[in-house]
Amino acid sequence: MTTRIMTALDRLRDDNRGDVPGWVLITLMTAGLVIIIWGLAGPALSSVFEQAIERVTGF
């Protein structure tokens, strides 16, 4: 019984190692997309935010 448990744990440990590079790649790609979108939409978002603040403080 102990051998079965050890074998199952070894399989789980080995299976998870292959996922790490995938998660790193997904994280880097997501960060890259955020940087690109922020660079393109940043000025427009800043102006929308400033207009909203001016409307709120204008009351």
Rank of each mutant, 00 (worst) to 15 (best):
Ile5Glu: 08
Val24Thr: 14
Leu28Ala: 09
Gly39Pro: 01
Thr57Trp: 02
Ile37Asp: 01
Ile37Asn: 02
Asp15Lys: 10
Val34Lys: 01
Arg11Gln: 14
Phe49Met: 10
Thr57Gly: 00
Thr27Gly: 13
Leu45Thr: 01
Gly32Ser: 11
Ala52Lys: 03
Leu45Asn: 06
Gly32His: 06
Leu9Val: 08
Pro21Glu: 04
Thr7Ser: 13
Val48Phe: 05
Thr57Glu: 06
Gly42Asp: 01
Asp10His: 07
Gly42Ser: 05
Arg17Gln: 13
Met1His: 11
Asp15Thr: 13
Val24Gln: 12
Ala41Cys: 03
Arg55Lys: 09
Met6Leu: 14
Ser46Val: 04
Gly32Arg: 08
Gly58Lys: 12
Ala44Lys: 09
Gln51Asp: 12
Asp14Phe: 08
Leu12Arg: 10
Pro43Lys: 00
Gly58Asn: 14
Ile5Phe: 13
Ile26Ser: 10
Ile26Leu: 14
Leu45Pro: 00
Ile37Phe: 02
Met29Leu: 15
Thr2Asp: 06
Thr27Ser: 15
Ile35Pro: 02
Val48Ser: 09
Gly32Val: 03
Met29Tyr: 09
Trp23Ala: 14
Arg13Asn: 14
Pro43Cys: 00
Ile35Arg: 13
Ile5Tyr: 14
Thr57His: 03
Ile35Cys: 03
Leu45Tyr: 03
Ile53Ser: 00
Thr30Asp: 01
Arg17Lys: 15
Leu28Gln: 08
Thr27Pro: 02
Asp10Trp: 06
Ser47Pro: 01
Thr7Gln: 12
Arg4Trp: 10
Leu25Ala: 15
Ile26Met: 12
Glu50His: 09
Gly42Pro: 01
Gly18Glu: 12
Val56Gly: 05
Val34Met: 07
Gly22Pro: 00
Met6Asn: 13
Thr27Lys: 04
Ser46Tyr: 07
Gly42Val: 02
Ala8Trp: 12
Val24Ser: 07
Gly42Thr: 03
Ile37Glu: 02
Ile36Leu: 13
Leu12Glu: 12
Ala31Leu: 15
Ala31Thr: 04
Leu12Pro: 02
Ile36Gln: 00
Thr27Leu: 11
Pro21Asn: 08
Ser46Asn: 12
Leu12Ser: 13
Leu33Cys: 09
Thr27Tyr: 02
Ile5Met: 11
Ile5Pro: 04
Gly22Trp: 07
Thr2Asn: 13
Trp23Asp: 11
Met29Lys: 07
Met1Gln: 11
Ala44Thr: 10
Arg13Lys: 15
Gly58Ser: 15
Arg13Glu: 12
Phe59Pro: 01
Met6His: 07
Gly39Cys: 00
